[in-house]
């Protein structure tokens, strides 16, 4: 018995390094940011820090740039999350059905995700270039007028969505493929004996069996969508006319260009609150589907 306790103590020791780093690099900054959100901290001001209560939150709710960035972020999430889930699920189904070359195709789909977001954004910025870009070169070859993918307000955000899908689909597809491979084959065999069509197999067996994983993909891709920054920062720097300035870029500008760290912390907490609401809704859906 004492040997087990001793082993347990030793095992706990192995957790200490991670626990310490979690405390220092995750918990402490969160607590610090929480405190900051109620202060005025301007790096360029001689009075660096003082308590302002809820003023930062009140200012945010009246700030047209915050409202605009919230709209952009929500539109981005609405565009990308369904597309992300449907496409990754479709790709996973396709890969599952493949009998030859599946590993090679899986590798190719996963490959874009290996690029750093900056690298991926620079590549796609060139693809999208209005005058000299790859896509417009192809359009010109077939006699179509060039399109200013990143220069048109209505096209810039959808163009970034397409790039983000290319960049992010691989990971989700691999997860969904793994989940597909876990579905017992006897379920399909029994249904086919009963004369089920392919569509019935998909809707009555595959999707219900995959619901936990699908909801996981929905939740994580939603969180990622709300935190979009690298692509918009590198490809359009929030333009044209702020049509791709999301919340994280607004927070970045507020903290590191305007040096208003207190206000930026408040904006971060508002973003966190939005994500939390979405997660709670999705968690409720998850619980209902399990029940």
């Amino acid at each position: 018995m004492s040997s087990i306790k001793s082993q347990s103590r030793h095992a706990n020791l192995f957790v200490v390094p991670y626990g310490m780093s979690f405390l220092v690099f995750i918990v402490c900054p969160i607590l610090f940011a929480a405190a900051l959100a109620f202060t005025q901290l301007d790096l360029t001001s001689r009075e660096h820090l003082h308590f302002v209560g809820l003023d930062n939150f009140r200012e945010a709710l009246k700030d047209p740039y915050f409202i605009q960035a919230t709209k952009v972020t929500c539109v981005y999430a609405i565009m990308i999350v369904p597309a992300f889930v449907v496409l990754s699920f479709g790709l996973a189904l396709g890969l599952q059905a493949m009998t030859f070359g599946r590993n090679a195709v899986r590798g190719l789909i996963f490959l874009p995700g290996m690029f750093n977001v900056v690298v991926a954004s620079i590549i796609w910025r060139w693809f999208y270039d209005g005058e000299f870009g790859f896509f417009n070169y192809l359009l010109k070859r077939v006699g179509i007028m060039p399109i200013h993918w990143l220069g048109e307000k209505t096209l810039a955000l959808p163009s970034i969505v397409v790039m983000s899908l290319w960049w992010g689909l691989g990971g989700a597809t691999i997860i969904l493929l793994a989940a597909l491979q876990q579905i017992p084959t006897h379920l399909y065999e029994a249904a086919m004996i009963d004369g089920a069509t392919s569509r019935r197999l998909l809707t009555n067996i595959t999707i219900p069996q995959m619901r936990h994983v699908l909801l996981f993909i929905v939740v994580t891709s939603t969180i990622g969508a709300f935190q979009v920054f690298g692509q918009t920062f590198m490809m359009t720097n929030g333009g044209p006319d702020r049509s791709t300035t999301g919340l994280v870029q607004l927070i970045y500008d507020t903290a590191f260009n305007k040096y208003r760290l207190g206000y930026a912390a408040a904006l971060s907490w508002l973003l966190f609150a939005m994500i939390l609401v979405v997660i709670i809704v999705q968690a409720l859906l998850l619980r209902r589907s399990i029940d």
């Binding site: 270039d129 209005g130 005058e131 000299f132 200013h148 990143l150 220069g151 048109e152 044209p240």
Partner: peptide, 17 residues
């Protein structure tokens, strides 16, 4: 000048466009 959507600017100058 090129329209607002275009980004011909400096790159265009380098490419003699």
């Amino acid at each position: 000048t090129p329209p607002a959507e275009s980004n011909a600017g400096w790159t265009g100058f380098r490419q003699k466009k």
